[in-house]
Amino acid sequence: MSQSSAPSRHLSAERVLLVLFLAVVGTMCAVSPYFRIAQNLLETMRYLVEPGIVALAMTLVIITGGIDLSVGAIVGLSAVLLGMAWKSWGLPVGAAVGVAIGAGALCGLINGVMVVAFRIPPLIVTLATMAVFRGLATGLCHGTPVSGFPESLRPLGQGYYAIGGGLRLPAQTLILVGLAVAAWVFLSRTRHGRCIYAIGLNETAARYAALPVDRVKIAVYTLSGCLAGLASSVLVSRVATAKPDAGLGFELDVITACVAGGVSITGGRGTIPGAMLGLGIVGCLRRGLELTPSVTSPDVAVIIGLALVLAVFAHQVLAPMLANRVARGRRMRPVREEAP
């Protein structure tokens, strides 16, 4: 249901997520001696930005009832193109970032067109293009990473804003916040946002309602690719290297964040604030575990995988069960009064 349609229930869902988020942060602070350092908490934001940017578009994609598994591969391809544009083609760094974002958008456009024009399930399209884009990334640079970027690329991924008290906010956080607000307004307050929900809830009815279903679907996949290109640029700036395996497994983080944030994998339901809370939960979990000495990185992978299963299970199976129980007691009553 669209965010505006049943505010009370959504607020409560997001309230649950907020409590969960605070619980995760609290636990991580208790478990990990490094995580709880204030500057490290802020530093965690840096790691949330890249999946966060892509999660915004992924939320839209999933609400239309689709999925985009190729975002990680697009990150890799965009990274390689950014490196090549700067190093081989001699473009300035700014233009190279433009190339990366543009290439991402093109990849997304290809996904969207395949989904719409050939009626191929998004799952298959993006699974295949995941291989295509990753293959292109490896093929274009023959597996060789590019590094030695100039100083001018640094602000995107390594910059800071001092926020007082000696604490510094990672610069890219502002990109995420700005985009998140824009996506929130877009989804909840524009006709195309409403159209996205309508497509996910009943695509046929949306078509009969004369909504621009095909255009919107192509647009959300294009946006997904475009933001993956942007995330790729931030990533390259942060690690100062452009390599073809950048963003490997990235799609898992992004989808997990969305699903944990209550975006229904079957479409039609979900909000941007929810997805961002999901991102916070998953991100803090990951970062906190990584900063805990006794936990190794394969453990983190296992835990994130489990989190995804549990999140989907909770939202797809448990929540509807609870909602049904509530509905039986409450929601049907006005209808009975109204029956002839």
């Binding site: 999925i67 598994l69 799952l123 497994g249 799609e251 898992l252 989808i255 699903v259 994998i265 079957t266 992978a301 296992v302 994130i304 995988g305 489990l306 995804l308 299963v309 989907v312 299970f313 797809q316 199976v317």
Partner: peptide
């Protein structure tokens, strides 16, 4: 658990 196969196996792929 009636999870979509793609989600379930995406998770176990990592696990």
């Amino acid at each position: 658990m009636r999870l979509p196969p793609i989600i379930m196996t995406l998770a176990t792929l990592t696990i």
